[in-house]
Design a protein around this nucleic acid. Structure first.
Length: 543
RNA sequence: GCGCUCGUAGCUCAAUUGGACAGAGCAUCUGACUACGGAUCAGAAGGUUGGGGGUUCGACUCCCUCCGAGCGCGCCA
C-alpha cells in the first residue's frame, strides 16, 4: 500500500517536472488517527524547488492521487502547512492479516537486505578476572538481540567475545589467589572479592602468579559463559587475546604499519604515530612496551586486523562500554592505516549503568569486590525480566537501576505484561480445543467483519512490525522491538478485554466473527513468537 | 583544562532520525469481572524537552553558547 502511494505521488511530481524515485517519497504513519493512515510531506519538501506554495502543491498532489483509482483509497486531504493525508478503507488492514498468516513465523518481518554480508559482532568481552557484574553484562542482551535482529534481516552474524587472558591483570589475579591460599597480604592492585578465596581453596598448582592467574581466569571464564548462557547469550567464538600475541599477529600488524612509516621506536618502546602522522588521534600510542610486552591497544589492533584482513569479515561491530571510548579513535586510525574502510568498523558505545541500593548509589569495582554480580540479578528477577529491562532503553542513555525497585516490583516489569498477552493467546487456543471449535481455513473466512476499533488498532500494530524490525536493524537499535512488542501486547489486551472471541454457542450467527477473530489472534501469536525470539525472551504458554 | 556521550512528567525510560497537540510504565486518584486467565481494561492528574540564542514552512532532534552529569585523557585493560 505504501509503495502504491509512493508511486502515485512520484508520478504526480514527475508530471510537474521533478524526478523523484518512488522510494524517496517520504511516507509516514501519522500519530493521530484523524490525520489518516498514511501521510506524506512531499509538498513541503518539493515546494521550494518548484517555486510554489506548499499548500498549493499539496492540493495538486491531493487531487491527482485521489483520481488515480488506487485500491482502498477512501479520502485524501491536505492538512497543516502542506501535509497530504491518505485515509484508507479498512480492507487494507485485512490484507495485512492475510500477509501475516501467509508469511508466518519464518517469513513475516524478515528481510534480505543484509545480503549475507558477514558481520563480526563483538560484545561484553569483560575481563575474566572476576564474575561478570551488572555493569559489564548490562549491554549483553542488547548485543545479543542486535545479532538476532540483523540475522533476520539477512546478515550473516558471527558473535564474538574477546577474552583478556594475558597480561598484567592475569598476573595480579594469580597473585591475589596465591595470597589467599597462603594467607598473605593481597597486593595493592589485587582482587579483593570473596570469589578469590573460593578459587584459592581449589587451586593446587605451583606458586607461580602467572600460572595461577591463567588457571583462575580459565575457571572464571567458564562461569562467565554459564552466566551469559543463562540469559540466552551464546557466542560463536571466544577469541583469546593470548593467541593473538603468540601467533605473531601483532608483529605482522606492526610490520605493515612500519612499511607505511607509521612506527617509531622511542625510549625502547614501539610507537604507533597515530597523531604525529596526522591520522587524527589525539596522541601517539605505544604498541609494545620497553619490556617487550604488548599493550592492550597493540593486541586490539592485531585483533581487528585479524577480523578484517585475515578472516575477511565485511563489517565489524563492537559494543564497548563508555569506559573504553578513549580507544575508539586509536582503533579507527589503526584500521584506516591498514587500508580498511573505517565505515565498515562500527563502534557502539554503551553508556554506564549505575546501581542504586538502599537509596544510595555506589561504584562497582571488580578489584574491591563490591559489585553486584549479574548472576545475583538474574536470580532475583529471572532471566526474561533482566533481558527485557536491559532492552528497554537506547545504548547511549546512561541507565539507572534501582535494585530495591526492580526487586520489589518485579511483578511490574513489562516482561510480565507481554508474556501475559502471549499466555492469553495460548489459553484461547486451549479453550478452543476443549470446546471442539473448528478453525475454518482463512481463505474461507470473511475478514471484512473485523471492524471494531480494538481489532483495527491491533491490525495497525501488526502492520508496523516489518518496518520496526528494519529500523531496529539499520539503526542498531534492538530496543525498538521492545517498544513494539509492548504496543502489540497493549493492543491485544485491549482487544481481548472488549471483544469476545470464543462464543459459547458456535452455531449461532456470529460464528463468522469468531472465525475472523481467531485468525487475528493467530496473527498475534505469530508476531509474538517472532518478536520474542528477536528479544531473546521466552514465550510462556502458562504463567 | 581537552575529548566523547548525555540532560525529556515526582521516578525509570521512549519519541517514526527535522514533522502535525512530546508518549509509555511505575507511583497517586477514580471507575470496570455472569463468556475466554483482573498479572487485564477505561479515565484523571502530571511538561516552557536544563537555560539562552540561531537555522526553516516546522526543532526533543541540526548549529553556537552557558549550566549540570557520566566516561575517557597510562609503557592499565
Amino acid at each position: 500500500m505504501r509503495e502504491d502511494l509512493q508511486r502515485s505521488i512520484a508520478t504526480v511530481l514527475s508530471e510537474l517536472g521533478i524526478d523523484v524515485a518512488p522510494s524517496d517519497v517520504v511516507m509516514e504513519r501519522p500519530l493521530r488517527i484523524e490525520h489518516g493512515d498514511w501521510s506524506t510531506n512531499a509538498a513541503l519538501v518539493y515546494a521550494k524547488l518548484l517555486g510554489k506554495n506548499p499548500r498549493d502543491l499539496a492540493n495538486e498532489i491531493c487531487d491527482k492521487v485521489a483520481d488515480s483509482g488506487l485500491q482502498y483509497l477512501e479520502r485524501v486531504e491536505v492538512a497543516g502547512p502542506g501535509f497530504v493525508n491518505f485515509h484508507l478503507s479498512i480492507g487494507w488492514l485485512h490484507d495485512i492479516l492475510l500477509d501475516v498468516i501467509d508469511k508466518g513465523e519464518e517469513g513475516y518481518a524478515r528481510f534480505d537486505f543484509g545480503a549475507s554480508e558477514r558481520v563480526n559482532l563483538e560484545f561484553v568481552s569483560a575481563n575474566p578476572t572476576g564474575p561478570i557484574h551488572v555493569g559489564n553484562g548490562w549491554w549483553g542482551a542488547y548485543g545479543d538481540s542486535l545479532g538476532r535482529v540483523m540475522a533476520r534481516c539477512g546478515y550473516t552474524v558471527h558473535r564474538e567475545y574477546y577474552v583478556n587472558d594475558t597480561g598484567r591483570q592475569v598476573r595480579m589475579l594469580g597473585e591475589s589467589v596465591l595470597a589467599r591460599k597462603f594467607d598473605s597480604e593481597i597486593p595493592d592492585d589485587g582482587y579483593q572479592g570473596e570469589y578469590v578465596s573460593r578459587l584459592a581453596k581449589s587451586y593446587s598448582g605451583p606458586a607461580d602468579a602467572m600460572v595461577a592467574g591463567k588457571w583462575a581466569s580459565e575457571m572464571i571464564l567458564e562461569e562467565i559463559k554459564d552466566t551469559l548462557a543463562s540469559i540466552g547469550i551464546e557466542y560463536d567464538a571466544w577469541f583469546s587475546q593470548a593467541s593473538i600475541e603468540e601467533s605473531g599477529a601483532l608483529n605482522e600488524t606492526i610490520n605493515e604499519l612500519r612499511i607505511k612509516g607509521l612506527i617509531e621506536e622511542r625510549d625502547g618502546a614501539t610507537w604507533f604515530m597515530s597523531h604525529t602522522a596526522g591520522l587524527g588521534d589525539s596522541r601517539d600510542r605505544v604498541l609494545v612496551r620497553s619490556d617487550g610486552t604488548p599493550t592492550y591497544l597493540g593486541g586490539d589492533l592485531a585483533y581487528h586486523r585479524n577480523k578484517f584482513l585475515v578472516r575477511g569479515f565485511d563489517r565489524v561491530i563492537d559494543i564497548f562500554g563508555a569506559d573504553h571510548q578513549g580507544q575508539v579513535a586509536s582503533l579507527k586510525c589503526g584500521m584506516d592505516a591498514l587500508g580498511v574502510d573505517t565505515s565498515r568498523l562500527e563502534i557502539l558505545i554503551g553508556q554506564m549503568i549505575s546501581l542504586v541500593e538502599g537509596g544510595k548509589s555506589g561504584k562497582m569495582s571488580k578489584r574491591l569486590g563490591n559489585f553486584v554480580s549479574l548472576d545475583e540479578l538474574i536470580e532475583d528477577l529471572g532471566s526474561d525480566a533482566v533481558r527485557l529491562l536491559a532492552l528497554m532503553g537506547s545504548l547511549d542513555q546512561a541507565n539507572t537501576l534501582d535494585l530495591d525497585v526492580v526487586r520489589s516490583q518485579s511483578m511490574e516489569n513489562p516482561v510480565y505484561y507481554i508474556q501475559y498477552a502471549y499466555a492469553r493467546i495460548c489459553s484461547l487456543e486451549r479453550v478452543r480445543e476443549e470446546r471442539s471449535i473448528e478453525r475454518v481455513p482463512i481463505e474461507n473466512v470473511d475478514l471484512g467483519v473485523l471492524s471494531h476499533p480494538r481489532e483495527l488498532e491491533l491490525l495497525r500494530v501488526l502492520e508496523t512490525m516489518p518496518d520496526t524490525v528494519r529500523e531496529a536493524c539499520e539503526e542498531r537499535a534492538p530496543h525498538k522491538v521492545t517498544a513494539w512488542v509492548r504496543k502489540l501486547a497493549a493492543a491485544f489486551h485491549g482487544f481481548y478485554h472488549d471483544c469476545p472471541i470464543l462464543f459459547q454457542d458456535p452455531d449461532q450467527d456470529d460464528s463468522a466473527l469468531m472465525q475472523a477473530r481467531l485468525w487475528l489472534v493467530e496473527a498475534c501469536r505469530v508476531a509474538s513468537v517472532i518478536a520474542f525470539s528477536l528479544l531473546g525472551v521466552s514465550t510462556l504458554e502458562r504463567m
